[in-house]
Design a protein around this nucleic acid. Structure first.
Lengths: 198, 198
DNA sequence: AGCAATAGAAAGATCATTCTTTTCATTACA
DNA sequence: TGTAATGAAAAGAATGATCTTTCTATTGCT
């Protein structure tokens, strides 16, 4: 019994992987189906048998990435009780993703999905960022960090971290984020912890 | 002698204004020349007599916006001598732009220009962000803020501010930035000023 | 043999850009 | 002052390339 070299599942994920890389590299609209066909070796017909259309392909990639991230985040959050440790778990996860899977990270965070995905919750409304806000809110109740609007706190903390990711992905910041996590974590923490007046 | 209703300069800037709005609203690639023709009332022929092609139109909009921002920033920086005041001038400018000209701000900061402009310095490499880094570097020399890599400091400070802008433009943060400048300025300042150990 | 999976040509739409025609302010001249 | 010539500017139809998606013929496994 000879198996086909590529099972449908394999091919489907090959198409997704190829498309993800091309989308990030050249932008969704600059990647045509024929381009994906050439790059993946999977035919037009096969692609359209797996995905309703180009947008559905983009959407499926996005959903998969976000699901995985959410799971990983939940896993890392377990056992953490301190505000600082929870926030640090978030930063570690984000930085690890960035260094290990920069393309995934770029697709998740910095593509303007609304431009090509019609039903797409913006990432800033998505689960992980709600969770961070929740952690910060609890931290304020416990007096671990300074009192303020939880949106402002969330913006400030994630702002430091996500800008680090952004400039790392753009190769403006040229050092490993995981190796320099202390610096960014400190700054992000100080942003939500201290008062200027103190 | 009757003048034409619209001089070429007027029409050219009308096209730019229309295109800017459409690009931000729907994304560069989702806006065709015929769309701009319909929305502006300027014909295809006229548009192509002003701009070599669609990309040149996009580029001219970008250059104009960036030039104006640079000038405004220089102007606000004059007379400022303290590190804090210089940084605050940056934040005030950015927040004012965001509230008064959200579309301009979005085009300047959050469009993925590399996807449609071939010769385009990424914004994070551009003049204003170099200046912020320079201010931070001087602040460290003067011991106004904590010692650290100036890239890390720049990322942290602008991270807080730009994420505020991003979420404000996405209508996730629903309050005026100019009215809440104190909160964000404090957090951004604390990020670069204090040490966790202190 | 039968059938799902696949390939790739073809269809149909849309886009950026070009090109020809028309318009209109200005100038030259009567 | 009135009129015709001129050429830059503008309009919009036409072009050709390219894109997404569909469709039909073929493949290869069971």
């Amino acid at each position: 019994m000879t198996l086909r070299k590529k099972t449908p599942e394999n091919k489907m994920s090959l198409v997704q992987k190829t498309a993800l890389n091309l989308f990030v590299q050249k932008g969704y609209h600059n990647v045509s189906i024929p381009t994906i066909v050439k790059a993946s070796g999977v035919s037009t017909g096969a692609i359209y048998s797996y995905f309703k259309n180009k947008e559905a392909l983009g959407q499926s990639i996005y959903n998969q990435i976000l699901d995985r991230f959410n799971q990983d985040f939940s896993a890392r959050l377990e056992e953490k009780t301190e505000t600082y440790d929870k926030l640090r778990a978030f930063v570690e996860l984000v930085f690890n993703y960035t260094e290990q899977d920069p393309i995934v990270m770029e697709y998740m965070l910095f593509m303007r999905h609304a431009e090509f995905l019609h039903e797409c919750t913006p990432i800033c409304h998505s689960e992980p960022f709600k969770v961070v806000r929740q952690i910060l809110w609890e931290g304020m109740q416990r007096q671990d960090i300074k009192q303020q609007d939880d949106f402002v706190a969330g913006i400030s903390f994630t702002g430091v971290i996500l800008r680090a990711v952004e400039l790392r992905l753009a190769d403006v910041y040229r050092h490993s984020l995981t190796e320099n996590i202390e610096s960014f974590m400190e700054n992000a923490w100080c942003a939500v912890k201290y008062r200027h007046s103190e």
